[in-house]
Design a protein around this nucleic acid. Structure first.
Lengths: 182, 182
DNA sequence: GTGACACTGGACCAATCGGTCTATTCCTGT
DNA sequence: ACAGGAATAGACCGATTGGTCCAGTGTCAC
């Protein structure tokens, strides 16, 4: 919340991520980002020479890193895969309530942007990174390789679908109930 | 594919649904819709006095009806809930391959539009309609009320999450594998 | 025929879009 | 002190946006 000491580039990335996730790539004008980040247009094109698309990629990567940290935090102290997965669902539900996050930011940023092929491929890359992170923890917790792979992908699907339903219902209840589907 | 005999209003709805689902609400200009539907601007504002937002609601409703028909077609001949759900997943995978559908159209249309509250509430209404349709079939196939409710919601979550991963990977494989998560 | 009304066609508009450009300020190494 | 690159500041641009408006066109009932 103390944005003042943050460097301009980081302020731009955070502002862009926040706006993109609520209104989508095309729904956000550069003027909106600039106003929220309190930065002039010159700074944006200095840090992101390719303009809006560069900024979108950076924002998606930043959001992805946050998610990876959340996954790690959920599974690090867990005794079993189920425990870690449940913790992750609860953390996401809390995040949903606090921030009113409108979507997995990556989806909103990357699925409707320009250069659709490149953007979508990047989304796939990011998602596979999340699944790989879960998979690592699953194997560490004793699951066989094939089992761990299936479980990690299953968890990803549940979270994405659950998040979408939570959005539509404006309630995090679905996310908390996800553990019953594991 | 024979759009010619279709009334202008229907051509507009179909064109809008097709474009919105690939590029999102803000990503599509009225000029694009008009060009694809081969209709002048005057017709659009005659049939949809509130312009783009009216058109988006109509497009979402049309897409929703298509999905309801798909659910019915999948469960009508099914002997068990699992069989119907599996058929639905396969039908969706085929749809994904044929049309290259970019997203659940409802999500792309309603989650990033203007009037975010009203639009999102409408998305919730549509989704609950899908779940209710599945629930009806589940009960008809002998599941208890509470069990049917949980299974219907579970299927919805799997499909939404699976579709998203399929999009990112540009492969319908995930959708076909969904049955293993039932 | 003729009036009434649903519909089409497209010119036109202010506002906003993403992006470019140059002038200026700030900071750091020497 | 001063040089020089990094960063900031914002005026400016052509293109496109959603939306308005009205003159035409078709098609009914009478």
């Amino acid at each position: 919340m103390t944005d003042a000491p943050l460097p301009t580039k980081d302020r731009l990335i955070r502002a862009a991520a926040n706006l993109f996730r609520t209104r989508g790539y095309h729904g956000v004008g550069l003027a909106d980002v600039l106003a929220e980040a309190q930065a002039p247009k010159g700074s944006l094109y200095h840090h992101f020479p390719n303009g809006k698309s560069d900024l979108a990629i950076a924002a998606a990567n930043w959001a992805s890193d946050e998610m990876l940290r959340l996954i790690a935090a959920s599974f690090d102290g867990a005794e079993t895969f189920e425990a870690g997965a449940t913790t992750l669902c609860y953390k996401l539900a809390k995040l949903f309530d606090i921030t009113g996050w409108d979507t997995c930011p990556v989806a909103n940023i990357l699925f409707e942007g320009p250069d659709n092929d490149a953007f979508r491929a990047h989304a796939g890359h990011i998602y596979d990174g999340w699944i790989a992170e879960v998979l690592d923890h699953a194997e560490r917790l004793g699951l066989s390789e094939s089992d761990a792979s299936a479980r990690a992908e299953h968890l990803f699907v549940l979270i994405q679908g659950g998040w979408m339903l939570a959005r539509a219902r404006r309630s995090s209840e679905v996310l908390r109930d996800l553990r019953s589907m594991l």
